[in-house]
Design a protein around this nucleic acid. Sequence first.
DNA 1: CAATCAGTTCGAAAAAAATCGAACATTGAA
DNA 2: TTCAATGTTCGATTTTTTTCGAACTGATTG
Lengths: 116, 116
Amino acid sequence: MPNIPNSSEISLTTVFNALGDPIRMKIAYCLASTGEKNCSTFEVGHISKSTLSHHIKVLREAGVIQPRIAGKQHFYSFRKEDLSIRFPGLMDLILNSAEVGIHKSSIQVINISDHN
Amino acid sequence: MPNIPNSSEISLTTVFNALGDPIRMKIAYCLASTGEKNCSTFEVGHISKSTLSHHIKVLREAGVIQPRIAGKQHFYSFRKEDLSIRFPGLMDLILNSAEVGIHKSSIQVINISDHN
DNA sequence: CAATCAGTTCGAAAAAAATCGAACATTGAA
DNA sequence: TTCAATGTTCGATTTTTTTCGAACTGATTG
């Protein structure tokens, strides 16, 4: 299950596909900005652990993040070295988009006068 | 129908979501590298015109491409100015990934000895 | 005006992705 | 060894996306 692609196998389309989801973008941003973290500390909303596990898998298989297993804890980190060689600018793009969490599907229009 | 977001409304996650599809990545690469084009000239595989229209819509609504309607023809272009201000480096990322068309889901393993 | 061309929209079907709870590992601790 | 903690995997369900053909729209052409 440590099924992670090597640097040369990482595809931009697949990386974009992985990052094109608000939860996964949050995780990637979190790891890119603060370094290695245990996945229980990811600040995603209320999702089940199996769902989180799934999103982590998508990021891992796309080549965005890297696991390090220490005992019963799994630490993840952004694949900074590999990605900055293969796709220079990608990490900055993620870091500079402070819009993390803002995605078309997560925008809600609250209409105050709408009281049905 | 000219439902295109203005520059400040373009979300990186939504852009990544749009580009995280091999057909749409092809279209974006095509436009980013060669400028304005009529959509009938996109070199995507055999897809119906309604499917192509759908993919164009996703790219347009994400803010990746821009339409210009001239008579009965629709010309599209990559939103170079807006995107390079909002997400510097994104266009180069797309241009430098000559892997266009290579995506996990489009890789086929041909086994020569498999003659059933 | 009728026909054609270029493309969008609609409706339905198929495929893919997201989500969850339950069951399953594996590690570390009592 | 038994239990709890930290995940992953499985199976099912729901939701979203992709895809197509048919019908539609708007502009040009005969």
